[in-house]
């Protein structure tokens, strides 16, 4: 059966364009032009993935997302404009799975949608993460690069394990801080980049051109999955 994708956006042009692109990629595309209609549509359509625009006329996208997350775990990809870093971060913190910035390429959008859907599927629990010559056994606490063991500090381990747990998904700075440092997170905010630089030096084969941990400017970090 074709997966259903719900587009919640008030701009008819964007909706039309996305419908064409999604139908072409094998989705069953549905449209809703306001937040309220969107929430209703989610309730009776039970879509597999939702594309949500943050700038809606009635409810703002963030509110829609928060209401949605009260009863639904359907993957949500946010559509935003470029200068909305704070909104993006807020949406990701509120439970969005990924974001795409307008103007976007349809190819990228479809890839993000697929990844989001995939993560939503129950998948086999494997404790081993592989990317290139990096191999990490999260359970055994062992990381190896090209067969040699890499020594990681406790913080670096915590970061890496977190990224692996959410592989492929963008994690906001705040999410990372909260997960790794807990309530004392704020004081570590200014050091976050340094920890990532150190981590990259240890796990990336070319730290100057990181392939495993990608920086999402203004948002956070994302672990690129091997496949």
């Amino acid at each position: 059966m074709k997966p259903t994708a719900l587009i919640i956006d008030d701009e008819v042009q964007i909706r039309r364009l996305l419908t064409v692109a999604l139908e072409g990629a094998g989705y069953n595309a549905r449209e809703a032009e306001t937040g309220t209609l969107g929430l209703q549509a989610v309730a009776h359509l039970r879509p597999d993935v939702i594309l949500l625009d943050l700038g809606l006329p009635d409810l703002d996208g963030l509110t829609v997302l928060k209401r949605l997350r009260e009863w639904s775990a359907t993957p949500v990809v946010i559509l935003t404009v470029r200068d909305d870093e704070t909104d993006k971060v807020a949406a990701l913190d509120a439970g969005a799975d990924d974001y795409v910035t307008k103007p976007f390429s349809t190819v990228e959008l479809l890839a993000r949608l697929r990844a989001a859907q995939r993560r939503a599927q129950p998948r086999e629990e494997t404790s081993i993460f592989r990317h290139g010559d990096l191999e990490v056994d999260v359970v055994a606490h062992i990381a190896k690069r090209a067969g040699d063991e890499v020594k990681l500090s406790a913080t670096e381990w915590a970061l890496l394990a977190l990224l692996i747990r959410h592989a492929g998904r963008v994690l906001t700075h705040r999410q990372i801080l909260r997960e790794v440092w807990g309530p004392k997170a704020e004081e570590h905010r200014q050091y976050l980049r340094v920890y990532f630089t150190h981590l990259r030096k240890k796990i990336e084969s070319d730290p100057a051109h990181p392939k495993i941990i990608r920086t999402e400017p203004g948002i956070g970090y994302r672990l690129i999955t091997g496949d």
Binding site: D83, Q190, R193, V194, T197, P217
Partner: peptide
């Protein structure tokens, strides 16, 4: 235009953190 507006409106508030110069250049 958006950047200029942000600067002009005083909405721009730098978040100071420790940065890696190389990373800055690459980004």
């Amino acid at each position: 235009l958006l950047d200029a507006t942000r600067i002009e409106s005083g909405m721009l508030k730098p978040v100071i953190e420790w940065c890696d110069a190389g990373e800055l250049a690459r980004e």
